[in-house]
Computed example of a mutant assay.
Amino acid sequence: MKLNSLTIIAAALAAGLTSAVAGNITGKVTLKGTPPAEKEITQLKDDANCGKMHTEPVKTRFYVVGAGGELADTVVMLKGISGKSTGASATPLIVDQKGCEYSPYVGAVQTGQSIVIKNSDPVLHNVHTQPTVAGNEELNKAQMAGGADLTFNFGKAENFLKFKCDVHPWMFSYVTVCDHPYFAVTGKDGTFTIKDVPAGEYTIVALHRKAAAAGMEQKVTVTAEGAKADFTLEVK
């Protein structure tokens, strides 16, 4: 009886150890094909206040791509996971309005995670959220030059939830809201890291507003050594 008890305890400890194993998913997103040339934002250039904040032409950011096809602003996340959000305790995402542009242009948060909007410009902006998923509230708040930060959070998962400025209609930012912490946004080098993913098999999806709005998926198996997941998206 004592031996059986020890065996049961050992098995339980082993199971707990297995469930605690986690690894990082790393990868790179590359764009295949030549994207359309980005266009100068003439509305910004011609604006009496915003135009003088820049010494060089400001262009659209539909495809931020490197010389080797490295694709920025791609949201990479696990699919089919819900109810795992730790957003209430997560570090806020900071979105700044500077030079009459939103930065970052593309971001990602968890449900319940704060999105803090700053205004570093010497002009009035308004922050107008335009969700498409029921349960995420449309809000429209003015933000004076040097005014207090504005904080938003959303309770439902949604891809590319739009933030815009009605005062300056070329200003947009897109924030994807996930119901779990397993996501990342690619940088200018096209790479990403999704940290501390519990060991197991998953579907991982890459989302890009122009090249993969519906997402590109693949299977990935995570171990203590991590996992690799590269994507090649095509110009649409």
Rank of each mutant, 00 (worst) to 15 (best):
S89I: 07
V116H: 08
I117W: 09
V109R: 00
T86C: 01
G68D: 14
E70L: 05
K118P: 09
A72R: 03
G107T: 07
T74Y: 00
L78C: 03
C100E: 01
T55P: 06
A108K: 03
V76S: 11
P104F: 11
T60V: 04
G69A: 03
Q97L: 15
Q110K: 14
A88W: 07
E101D: 12
A88H: 10
I94Y: 06
G80N: 09
V109P: 00
T74E: 00
S82H: 11
V106E: 04
Q113F: 02
A108D: 04
R61I: 01
A88K: 14
R61V: 03
P92Y: 07
G99N: 11
P104S: 12
C100L: 00
S89L: 09
P92T: 08
A90L: 01
G68N: 15
T86N: 04
C100W: 01
S114N: 13
T55I: 15
V58I: 07
V76W: 06
G107R: 07
G66M: 13
G87S: 08
A67G: 11
A90F: 02
G68L: 13
S89G: 07
I81T: 03
S89T: 11
I115Y: 10
G80I: 12
T91N: 01
Q97C: 12
D73P: 02
I115N: 13
G80W: 08
S82L: 09
T111G: 00
K98R: 13
V65K: 01
V64N: 13
S82F: 10
T91C: 00
K79I: 06
P57E: 05
Q97P: 04
Y63V: 05
S89C: 05
V95L: 07
K79F: 09
V106T: 10
K59S: 14
V95A: 04
T111E: 00
R61S: 01
V76D: 10
L78M: 05
R61M: 02
T55Y: 11
S89Q: 10
L78F: 03
I81F: 04
V106C: 05
Y105K: 13
S89R: 09
G83P: 03
G68I: 09
I81Y: 02
P92C: 08
K118E: 15
K84G: 05
I81A: 03
Y63Q: 02
A67R: 14
T55K: 15
G87F: 09
E56T: 06
D96C: 06
F62N: 14
A67N: 15
K59T: 15
V75Q: 05
G107W: 09
A67D: 14
T60F: 03
G68A: 14
T55N: 14
G66F: 08
G87R: 08
T86A: 04
I94C: 10
V95Q: 03
G87Q: 08
I117D: 10
L78S: 02
V95Y: 01
V116D: 07
T60S: 10
I94N: 11
T60R: 05
V116Q: 12
V76T: 08
E56D: 08
M77A: 15
G112H: 06
T60H: 04
L78K: 02
S85M: 10
V109W: 00
G83M: 06
G66R: 07
Q97S: 12
S114P: 07
V109C: 01
M77K: 13
G69Q: 02
D96G: 12
P92A: 12
R61G: 00
T86D: 03
K98E: 14
G68F: 08
S103K: 11
T91V: 02
S82Q: 15
S103F: 11
I94F: 08
V65N: 02
